[in-house]
Design a protein around this nucleic acid. Structure first.
Length: 593
RNA sequence: GCCUAAGUAGCUCAGUCGGUAGAGCAUUCCCUUGGUAAGGGAAAGGUCUCGGGUUCGAUUCCCGACUUAGGCUCCA
């Protein structure tokens, strides 16, 4: 463990020096460029520039060449400390650096700053760095992007150059390979190739059309999801897609979230002067709360667990939309748990157990846990009392610690209405995907005046938890596509079996076994095209169908099928009943095949 | 929303230094009846994203819009 940390530190230093090398190269090529910042990041490094003339991707190789040339000069990287005023003089032509120096002086009361020098390029920098340019490992510039100065959208947009560097060529190559592999698994590409979904300009950006294939998979997920919820005492409900403005005023959405909502539908009304306003729901909670509030509730009824596959619409900024991962209309696998104080810890633990089990069924054995806390610097951004926040954050922390799970605190990651536990699924390439979130809500129970009658006959305020396990059907299915590279395990595969008759003469037999499987709820297709068997196999492989059944005269005689599994060779003939037993087990046990 | 790119047949992509476009696969039809990743042939398929401008003429040049992508910011 210590050794690994040490290794990471070295890599970080190496990348940081690589970012300085990048800046040095850029300055030699375009001396008038203004510099932003250039840190090492998780998978590499970047440097932000304000170019006089914009550059393009085509310039990256040229910059790389220049970097290589500077690296070979065997330059010693030196460090010195100077007084603030001296630094201001040195960077008088670098407005962003100057701003940084001023910030350091003002906010942190710093009197001296350190400078690192690589050849003729000297940069304001905390360090540390390698000793010599020659020690910088093999590097590669990856992409060009816009980035706001200091990450603030009110500031100027700078040009960011992303790159990466490793200690050895081998490691760099394997990382570049990883990027290539990730690109192959891109759900948008696979979605098109396998006819899974589309987004149509005439419908609108961020709105998904689910094609039959992906809908079949979604249906399986939803059935499984409902079954597991029933088992755990959840009640399934349905709620409308729109609601009056009053509802959203009460919930606080019109105050806190209006720019995230689609504009209202205005209805004329004869009796009223004002138009009636309906909003499309950005969340399901108000509806769940009103079901709860439909009559008085006893402490005996709690916990109440309402769940719904609720489709919501949020007007996300156009720039954040991303295939099925970030959309404007999506179906949350939502639930609201209304619990007594004494039930809170147990219920959170139950949700965590549930989340783990569900994720496992989809091949996500590894999850990363994040505890989203309030930003203590900005307390007025949140609703709810100080005591409530402190208690809630402490309780969530204790739950995680008692479970002995490793978790990371995400300070400032809490919603305005409460802290949360978030789980990120780690996929087969090691990438993390946000899915499960368990959020406490201090806001709505109060705004909607939710109560229950306690043992003492008096009214009490319940605690409400929002939670999704999968996140949204859209994002989750996109994650699955990337996780499996489109080759879904049998239980999730849109088409589980492709029946391939060798010639027209075997078509009848093929039809017969196809119908038999349809009766047993197996998703099967008969390839009755006038094509050669080889071509049909090839197409079925491209469609990533897990089982191909080749049937010819030989099979027909023995009431058999020749089985071929996705990505493998002919497994030989077997009795149809044996195959049926096999696939039924795959499905029942949710085997990862 | 902002920065930088891209948009040609259902898909993957050529192409036109300004004279309205082509391949492979897919589709339809015909021939072929085959044993584990492409049998052969023919036909059909395009407002070259959309709207302006320049021009005798724009898919190509210029301007704008839309969509998509990589980021920033934000998030299920």
């Amino acid at each position: 463990m210590e050794e690994q940390k040490q290794k990471l530190k070295i890599l970080e230093t190496l990348r940081h020096s690589a970012s300085h090398l990048l800046a040095a190269a850029v300055l030699e090529m375009w001396p008038e460029t203004k510099l932003g910042i250039g840190p090492a990041i998780e998978n590499g490094f970047y440097y932000d520039f304000d170019f006089k003339e914009p550059i393009t991707e085509a310039d990256l190789p040229k910059i790389e060449e220049k970097m290589a040339e500077i690296k070979k000069r065997n330059l010693t990287i030196t460090c010195r400390e100077v007084l603030i005023n001296e630094a201001k003089e040195i960077f008088k032509d670098q407005p962003f650096k100057l701003e940084l120096i001023n910030d350091l002086e003002k906010d942190e009361g710093i009197k001296k700053v350190s400078l690192y020098k690589l050849g003729s390029f000297e940069d304001l920098c905390r360090g540390p760095h390698l000793e010599n340019s020659n020690l910088i490992g093999p590097f590669k510039l990856l992409s060009l992007a816009g980035a706001y100065w200091k990450g603030n959208e009110k500031n100027k947009m700078l040009t960011r150059i992303y790159g990466t560097s490793f200690s050895s060529q081998k490691e760099l190559d394997s990382y570049l390979n990883f990027l290539k592999e990730a690109e192959l698994r891109n759900h948008r590409k696979i979605g098109k190739d396998l006819d899974l979904f589309s987004i149509n300009e005439n419908v609108g950006p961020g709105l998904i059309l689910w094609h039959p294939k992906l809908s079949a998979t979604r249906e399986v997920i939803e059935e499984y999801w409902r079954k597991e919820h029933r088992k755990r005492g959840y009640q399934y409900i349905y709620s409308p897609h729109i609601g009056l403005d009053n509802l959203w005023k009460t919930s606080g959405h019109l105050d806190f979230f209006e720019e995230g909502m689609y504009p209202p539908m205005l209805m004329e009304s004869k009796d009223k002067k004002e138009k009636t306003r309906y909003f499309i729901k950005p969340m399901n909670c108000p509806f769940h709360i009103l079901i709860y509030k439909n009559r008085p509730r006893s402490y005996r009824e709690l916990p109440i667990r309402y769940c719904e596959l609720g489709t919501v619409y949020r007007y996300e900024e156009s720039g954040v939309l991303n295939g099925m991962l970030r959309v404007r209309g999506f179906t949350q696998d939502d639930a609201h748990l209304i619990v007594r104080e004494d039930q809170f810890v147990e219920e959170v633990n139950k949700v965590l157990d549930f989340a783990l089990e569900l994720n496992k069924a989809f091949g996500f054995d590894k999850l990363k846990v994040y505890l989203s806390l309030r930003d203590p610097e900005n307390k007025d951004k949140y609703v709810g009392s100080e005591e409530n926040w402190q208690l809630a954050e402490k309780t969530l922390k204790e739950i995680l610690e008692k479970r002995k799970v490793e978790y990371r605190e995400d300070v400032g990651g809490a919603k305005f209405y409460g802290p949360a536990i978030d789980l990120k699924a780690v996929d087969s390439l090691g990438r993390e995907w946000q899915g499960t979130t368990i959020q406490l809500d201090f806001n709505e129970p109060q705004k909607f005046e939710m109560t229950y009658i306690g043992k003492d006959g008096k009214e009490h305020a319940p605690i409400m938890l929002h939670r999704t396990l999968l996140g949204s059907m859209e994002r989750f299915v996109a994650t699955l596509i990337e996780q499996y590279a489109g080759a879904f395990p049998v239980w999730l595969a849109p088409v589980q079996v492709k029946v391939i008759p060798i010639s027209e003469k075997n078509l009848e037999y093929g039809k017969k076994i196809t119908e038999k499987m349809i009766e047993e709820n197996i998703r099967v297709e008969l390839d009755d095209r006038d094509e050669r068997m080889q071509a049909k196999i090839r197409d079925a492989e491209h469609e990533k169908v897990p089982y191909m059944l080749i049937v010819g005269a030989k099979e027909e005689r023995g009431n058999a099928v020749s089985v071929r599994m996705r990505g493998e060779k002919d497994l030989g003939p077997q009795a149809f009943s044996d195959f049926f037993k096999q696939i039924s087990e795959d499905i029942d046990k949710k085997r990862q095949v």
